[in-house]
Simulated assay, not measured.
Amino acid sequence: MGAIVTDEGSKPEILSRIAQTTSAITKLKLIWKDRNITLRSKIRLMRSLVTSIFLYACESWTLTADIERRIQAVEMRCFRRLLNISYRDHISNQEVRNRIGQAIGPYDDLLTIVKKRKLRWYGHVTRSTGLAKTILQGTVPGGRRRGRQRKRWEDNIPEWTGLKLPDALRDAEDRKKWREVVGRASVAPLRSTRLRDR
């Protein structure tokens, strides 16, 4: 699937995923315009043929405010294409979400899915005994650079759970307890489109 791993963080990988997702949904425009296919079926097709491309290896991402905004934007782009809504129609994002909800009922938005997957993977690795756990919990000698620090992968865990890392680590050891934490923490607040990169 061509995942990109660099020392620049997750942004290059996520921008690549957005481009691939946009390309995939554009190639399927005949399906989105077909009036003989129900909206419910179109949403299922989008999740299996388009959303899966975007979510590949999302457990490894480090999310900033800018990246969260981009994830919400790509989801809206897909929904608008699905509903054949032009941006010139002046239909709000909330109205788009309402139409999707009416078709399939309550659903997790794309940002919430990314958060759930990352938190579940954190719990899975914490309970394991392999190399992934050593890498995740290991430290290296030396200090961090001066100035504002770049956001790290594990910084998202306390943000989303409200737990300090040692407490999150302890809770993740208990599968049932961690499942409850993931359920509570994964409700993604809608970010303002005016948020700048952090």
Rank of each mutant, 00 (worst) to 15 (best):
A132Q: 11
I157A: 05
I85E: 09
C78W: 07
I91F: 08
K116S: 15
I135Y: 09
A103M: 04
I14W: 00
K164V: 06
A73Y: 00
V140R: 09
A73F: 00
L136K: 13
R148S: 04
R44Q: 13
Y56D: 05
I18C: 07
R152Q: 11
N93M: 02
Q94M: 07
E173N: 10
V74W: 05
G2M: 06
M76N: 11
T6P: 01
Q72L: 15
I25R: 01
E75Q: 14
R144N: 07
K177I: 11
P158K: 06
V5A: 06
Y107R: 06
D167K: 09
K11Y: 05
Q102R: 12
R170D: 15
W160R: 08
I85W: 13
S16P: 03
I85Q: 11
K151T: 15
M76P: 05
I43S: 02
I91N: 12
R127Y: 14
R150A: 05
D174C: 08
I14L: 08
T134W: 02
T62P: 13
A24M: 03
R47S: 14
S186M: 03
M76Y: 02
C78Q: 03
S128A: 14
R81E: 02
E173Q: 13
T22Q: 13
D66N: 06
E13I: 04
R191M: 13
R80K: 10
L15D: 15
S52H: 04
Y107C: 09
L111I: 09
K176S: 10
I25M: 10
E8R: 04
L45M: 15
C78N: 06
R120E: 05
I53V: 03
R194T: 07
G138C: 01
Y56T: 04
R179T: 09
W153F: 10
I135E: 06
A172L: 06
V182S: 01
T126S: 09
P166I: 00
N93K: 13
G147W: 01
V74F: 07
E13S: 14
T21Q: 07
V187L: 11
T22N: 12
L30I: 03
E95L: 05
N36V: 04
T6C: 03
R40W: 11
R47A: 12
W160N: 02
I135H: 08
G143P: 01
K151N: 04
L63H: 09
A65H: 04
